[in-house]
Design a protein around this nucleic acid. Structure first.
Lengths: 209, 209
DNA sequence: TCGATTATTGGACACTTGTCAAGATTTTCC
DNA sequence: GGAAAATCTTGACAAGTGTCCAATAATCGA
């Protein structure tokens, strides 16, 4: 018999090692690669399957429909993303070194996986149209905002000062800088990364007092 | 006889009043409305045609293919967009009033046509994947950056100071704030507009010295 | 080992997509 | 008014879409 209709809720584990959940992850990771390559608008279930060792029919065995697959991908993206970011809050003694480390960290994540970040901005745009993506995207946005806020408050502590703007504002500005750097980096600008480093270094002091 | 194959170059005018170019504009404007409503990924030529008084075949009489239609739309968006923005550089005597006017201007454009701005961010994301859109999108980006730069330099003049960051950096930060405000505005946040006004007011002093 | 469960395939479906062209309609101009 | 040119409709095409399902293969517990 078929496993009864697969839904998000049907992700209950049955065994110590859950092969079902493993394959879901495997498929979602392949889907993420395809999405990062082509963008949401140009990615179909069949092209996703082509980038795996399996056939297109299998996707509907592990995911109820396309929306569930994509949202699962988004959540999976977050897992990888946050993990990557977390390693970035370097410990430094002086504010200057801390600011430099922050700039270096942002530039490093950008250089490390530019296509994934491109996908992120694509999916965030899609979430403005597709209600189904909104909750997951918002959750990722929150975790990114929290990470930026740790940067700002960390810098403030080192300078014995207090942030002069909200968490949301800090995130918006850094996100703007990051997004612009990504765009320029993808179009071949050699200075994009250095500019991101520098502007990060210069923005931090402006946000505390 | 058919007008020989329509290309971008075939926009030569034949009459004092060029009905051909007029109809192109009319179709593109209808397409813009549909795009703003559904987003790029969900908009087809047939749904665009459904929002006009004409049939889907006509689109290929006025545009060579889908890409030419969309890029024409993007250029047309720019015309409307820049025009709307231009009215925003209010004249004010004191720096404080100038900053308030800037915040008010940004909030007004956002509130005036949120769906168009949503489309803008969608298309800008698409341009990261679709080479064909890149040039037009970049041109719009430049004109937006120039507008923000006029804001910043205008404020600097009033305070007898000089900008402490580049034009690109200013644009990136304001764009980040604007984009976040748009997202929150679209998801029903009542404070989004006021927050944009306030953060604009507070960011300007930080960018000059 | 064998029967039942799980996993996977590949083809079919109904529908949508961009594109094209032949024919009908309207406009233009002498 | 009528020929020529411009405009618009209609229907078709091949290819692609998400979804579903019967048939097959692999796995596992007894």
């Amino acid at each position: 018999m078929y496993r009864e209709h697969v839904t998000s809720a049907a992700a209950r584990r049955r065994n110590p090692v859950d092969k079902f959940e493993d394959r879901r992850r495997e498929l979602a990771d392949a889907a993420l690669l395809t999405l990062a390559d082509l963008g949401y608008a140009r990615t179909s279930l069949r092209t996703i399957a082509d980038n795996t060792a399996f056939s297109h029919g299998l996707l509907h065995y592990y995911f109820a429909d396309k929306v569930e697959l994509i949202t699962y991908c988004v959540r999976r993206y977050k897992a990888a993303c946050v993990q990557r970011y977390e390693g970035n809050l370097a410990e430094a003694e002086t504010p200057e070194r801390f600011a430099i480390a922050c700039g270096e960290g942002l530039a490093a994540t950008l250089a490390d996986a530019p296509l994934m970040h491109r996908l992120w901005y694509d999916l965030r745009s899609q979430s403005m149209f597709e209600e189904a993506f909104r909750a997951d995207v918002a959750e990722i946005d929150e975790s990114l905002e929290a990470m930026i806020w740790r940067m700002v408050t960390g810098y403030a502590t080192l300078t014995d000062a207090k942030p002069t703007c909200t968490s949301a504002e800090s995130y918006a500005m850094f996100d703007g800088l990051f997004q612009q750097a990504l765009l320029r980096h993808l179009t071949g600008s050699a200075e994009a990364l250095d500019d991101l480093r520098r502007s990060t270094r210069e923005l931090l002091p402006r946000l505390v007092d």
